[in-house]
């Protein structure tokens, strides 16, 4: 993935809203809570390979089908997956945007100071150089 920066991320959210690609920005609190569980992350990994029914999702896990259903409900409420209308199968499909925004948010927070500090490194180098050669110009 390309490098992310704060301006690009905020701009993307803005544009996605503007063009109607996302109606309202997803509630990232719900997305974070949903992603905080390792089973739910594993379910998302499974769904990244394609849509699947509850039975198909439950198969590789040592948990019951109702437990998987509960996890799916949390993921659905966070907007991370969509469920089909087929009453029997209700296949779950991954939705990319809320997760992209949540990961972007975290990246943005983590990189805010990191990238600012990189810029501070550059500034300090400039200050040191201008100190060395007498500060007679700006």
């Amino acid at each position: 993935m390309a490098r992310l920066d704060i301006s690009l991320i905020l701009y993307n959210i803005y544009v996605m809203e503007k063009i109607g690609y996302i109606d309202t920005p997803p509630n990232l609190d719900a997305v974070f809570a949903a992603l905080a569980d390792p089973t739910r992350r594993a379910i998302l990994t499974r769904l990244a390979a394609g849509q699947a029914s509850v039975n198909e999702i439950a198969e590789p896990f040592a948990i019951s089908q109702p437990a998987v259903s509960r996890h799916l409900k949390v993921l659905e409420r966070a907007g991370l997956i969509e469920r089909g209308i087929d009453e029997q199968r209700r296949p779950a499909t991954l939705k990319a945007e809320p997760m992209a925004l949540a990961v972007d948010w975290l990246t943005q927070f983590r990189e805010f100071w990191g990238k600012s500090f990189d810029q501070l490194d550059d500034l300090l180098l400039t200050l040191k150089q201008s100190n060395e050669q007498e500060p007679d110009n700006e």
Binding site: L35, T45, A49, A96, M99
Partner: peptide
């Protein structure tokens, strides 16, 4: 949650995201 997410689990978040972006 956000702080915990920075240390663990987000690697897989990125892997999933890459997959989805490819798909999109």
């Amino acid at each position: 949650e956000a702080m915990a997410g920075m240390d663990k689990g987000w690697g897989s978040g990125y892997a999933i995201l890459d997959e989805m972006l490819r798909e999109l």
